[in-house]
């Protein structure tokens, strides 16, 4: 009796370990499938577009004149490639400015950039609300807000 119980337990212990591994793999597989389905349906992330930014003067940055960028609830601008809108120019700080959607309007905030951000020609010191048609200057590149 004891011998059989020991044999069963010996096998059972190793089996439990493998079952645990399998269960974690199943959970991971289900997650991956879910993601693959989401990608197939074009829902990689719930992207909320609250406006657009049109390049009206690329300046020294390699931007296309007339290119249109989406504005999300938080959009960052700067020289670092990790920004939502990267502007690769020597006049632009790595983290230069950001655009925030709050209380139904868009706000431009300078994130301690060296050369400043300008909305309609005025330097941004505290967050400034912008409306469609406003211009934004970062370094020597200029943009225009549209809906």
């Amino acid at each position: 009796m004891d011998y059989q119980a020991l044999l069963a337990l010996r096998i059972g212990l190793v089996v439990v370990l493998y079952l645990a591994v399998l269960q974690v793999v199943f959970v991971a597989r289900r997650e991956l499938r879910h993601e693959v389905r989401a990608v197939a349906q074009g829902q990689t992330r719930v992207r909320e577009v609250v406006g657009h930014l049109i390049v009206i003067d690329p300046g020294s940055a390699p931007l296309q004149n007339g290119a249109i960028y989406d504005i999300e609830p938080i959009t960052t601008l700067g020289r670092a490639p990790t920004n939502s809108i990267p502007i690769d120019s020597g006049f632009v700080s790595a983290d230069h400015a950001r655009i925030i959607y709050r209380d139904g309007s868009l706000w431009v905030e300078d994130t301690q950039s060296r050369n400043g951000a300008f909305v309609d020609g005025h330097k941004v010191t505290t967050p400034v609300a912008v409306s469609p048609g406003s211009t934004l200057q970062i370094g020597d590149s200029r943009f225009k807000f549209t809906t």
Partner: peptide, 11 residues
């Protein structure tokens, strides 16, 4: 939260 690291105004 913003991921720029500067926390001048909590957005």
């Amino acid at each position: 939260q913003g991921h720029t690291g500067k926390a001048s105004a909590a957005p």
